[in-house]
């Protein structure tokens, strides 16, 4: 077994070029659980948590784009200044694990694991985030919905690493809600991210933990876009109920050890309806 701890992106890419199938280790909050339990064996590990180039963020005020390095932790996302630009992502970050977990867990690691229950992922989907990938020989950008191809499966190729993710900084209300058995240390049973984009007159909805990937809800989004009044911040009760129904219809949940498909389908409807009402508080 080898463990490489590069401090620069160049060295990380070099290490990965020499061992393209190396296991990438970010905050360790997923991988170490499997390693400790003996559920996973690794040969070459490239640790990314100390790559300084990955632990930075940039806010472009002209293009209104925020780019988060893959090594940005959930503790950082949950606090200012990042939280003000992506409030829904900050809300999702606050629901991740515990302070100890948020200090270690990174947005890049959440993307790398790509669990349908990953708290950051519905928000990245609703924000139409772009994932930045890089190898020793090139780089490419993928929309989040193309990056996540299945449960814990991504479009990342051997030799590539996730360098970061870019999201638009939008003016409208946005939020994230999840259901679990307690407030802290809980993996989402069902989760919903709602993002409003007043300039584009759009409402964007993404569901987590109710399908093999994060699910966008085009029908619900289209219905909301015509039903809401952005100027008055209003939407009717019947439109909220219709929106919730369309969210329920978009879910593709399963029964598993954490919950049932029926409950999950019910829950995403409730959460989607509540988020739409919060975004447009007037009746």
């Amino acid at each position: 077994m080898s463990v490489i701890v590069p401090l620069t992106l160049h060295d990380a890419l070099q290490a990965l070029a020499e061992a393209p199938d190396a296991t990438l280790l970010a905050g360790g909050t997923d991988l170490m659980v499997e390693l400790n339990a003996g559920h996973r064996q690794v040969t070459d590990v490239v640790s990314l948590s100390r790559v300084a180039d990955l632990c930075t963020w940039q806010h472009d005020p002209v293009r209104q784009v925020l780019t988060l390095g893959a090594g940005i932790t959930y503790a950082e996302i949950a606090t200012e200044p990042i939280a003000q630009w992506v409030p829904a992502l900050a809300q999702a970050a606050r629901t991740v694990g515990s302070p100890q977990i948020r200090n270690a867990a990174t947005i890049g690691g959440n993307l790398g694991t790509c669990s349908p229950a990953g708290d950051g992922l519905p928000v990245l989907s609703a924000l139409e985030a772009v994932v930045h990938l890089r190898s020793a020989t090139g780089s490419r950008d993928l929309p989040f919905d193309e990056f996540m191809v299945g449960p814990k499966r991504t479009a990342r190729l051997p030799g590539e690493l996730i360098t970061g993710v870019s999201v638009p900084v939008l003016d409208g209300w946005q939020g994230y809600s999840k259901v679990g058995v307690r407030n802290a240390m809980v993996i989402a049973t069902a989760s919903v991210a709602l993002v409003t984009d007043p300039a584009a007159r759009r409402v964007r909805l993404a569901l987590g933990s109710v399908g093999p990937v994060i699910l966008r809800c085009p029908e619900a989004e289209a219905a909301a876009a015509t039903a809401v009044d952005f100027h008055a911040a209003s939407v009717s009760d019947s439109a909220v109920e219709h929106f919730a129904e369309l969210a329920r219809a978009a879910a593709r949940p399963i029964d598993d050890h954490r919950s049932t498909a029926a409950y999950r389908r019910h829950a995403v409807g409730v959460l989607a309806g509540r988020l739409l009402r919060k975004a447009f508080p007037n009746g």
């Binding site: 701890v5 170490m32 640790s47 100390r50 100890q100 977990i101």
Partner: peptide, 15 residues
């Protein structure tokens, strides 16, 4: 300086 769970830190990365 960061509070973490030591069970989730791969020791060799903390050199």
């Amino acid at each position: 300086g960061r509070l973490v769970c030591s069970c989730l830190v791969l020791a060799a990365t903390a050199v």
